[in-house]
């Protein structure tokens, strides 16, 4: 079969589709990012680097840095919550392992929007938490827990935690259990074994998980919108604004490529780690 059907025939339809509806659109906004905005929001095909220069003005830079800060913190928290969980799952019997994994996978694929909404119900002024505090006598009046950075953290962490657990699980699961035993056998305590053997050998899972959490956290716009009240800007909101409100598409495109640059650096880092661990 290998030689009988040319792979080109098989690859053709998908690659054509991706060529037209992925490459061309990305190329288009790349070109736009060097154009100017006209007085009525139209695109004026006149070359400028101005959009990229404007990424470095203090307000925008602040949003970028704030987004990076939030995404990093979410990633670290996801790692701290996710690693022990993934580790625990690998230690279970086959049946439990499966059940626990499915329970991680389910939220992974179900509507994030709705799962974000659940937190509004929990945290808003008339919400479950606020009412609970009142009925426990811990508070006299309703408190809103929404519209602050913590709410955004929680929302992003909640949405992307499964993205961390799954790659971690698969890299820990792939680890030959005899390696840990060998380390014990050679006199290393469980803590040392974890630091010197388990963690370095699952680094790939850590990096993959971190990227899977970091990248979408960075680009997310509806969590800051819904839980942050739209006042606390992240990059996603800014791009959203340029496209749907301010109608400065060239500027918005430049912002998008700012994000893409960050993503690219991360992916290169991941490829480097992968190559390094694959060597051994």
């Amino acid at each position: 079969m290998k030689k009988l059907v040319s792979p080109l025939v098989l690859l053709g339809p998908a690659l054509t589709w991706l060529g037209i509806f992925l490459v061309l659109p990305l190329a288009l906004i790349f070109v736009y990012s060097f154009f100017q905005r006209g007085a009525f929001g139209q695109i004026v095909p006149q070359f400028t680097l101005g959009n990229y220069m404007r990424l470095f003005n203090p307000t925008v830079l602040k949003v970028f840095l704030n987004s990076l800060r939030i995404a990093s913190l979410v990633t670290v928290l996801a790692l701290l919550l996710g690693y022990p969980t993934a580790y625990f799952i690998t230690q279970q019997s086959a049946r439990w392992k499966n059940t626990l994994l499915v329970l991680v996978i389910l939220p992974f694929w179900t509507s994030y929007l709705i799962r974000t909404y659940a937190w509004i119900v929990l945290l808003n002024r008339e919400g479950v938490l606020s009412r609970l505090l009142i009925s426990l006598g811990l508070s006299r009046e309703p408190i809103s827990f929404l519209y602050n950075d913590t709410a955004i953290f929680i929302g992003l962490l909640y949405g992307y935690l499964p993205f961390m657990v799954l790659p971690l699980y698969s890299s820990i699961e792939r680890l030959n259990p005899e390696l840990r035993e060998a380390s014990f056998d050679l006199g290393a305590t469980p803590l040392k074994t974890f630091l010197q053997v388990t963690l370095p050998l699952t680094l790939r899972g850590v990096v993959t998980g971190a990227i899977f959490v970091f990248v979408p956290s960075l680009g997310n716009f509806f969590v800051p919108e819904l839980l942050g009240g739209g006042q606390r800007f992240m990059i996603g909101n800014m791009i959203n604004n340029q496209f749907l409100k301010a109608r400065d598409w060239p500027y918005g495109s430049a912002m998008a490529f700012g994000v893409m640059a960050i993503v690219l650096i991360l992916l290169l880092f991941q490829a480097w780690i992968t190559r390094r661990t694959e060597q051994s």
Binding site: L179, E181, A182, D185, L186, G187, A188, Q196
Partner: peptide, 30 residues
């Protein structure tokens, strides 16, 4: 007595050499 405290060592069936360490570091590990 825990495995890491026994004066007993093992050669594993899969050898269980630490893939991220050199031969030298593997041997020096214990």
């Amino acid at each position: 007595v825990k495995p890491w405290k026994r004066p007993v060592n093992m050669m594993f069936q899969s050898y269980a050499l630490f893939p991220h360490m050199t031969v030298y570091d593997n041997i020096a590990y214990g």
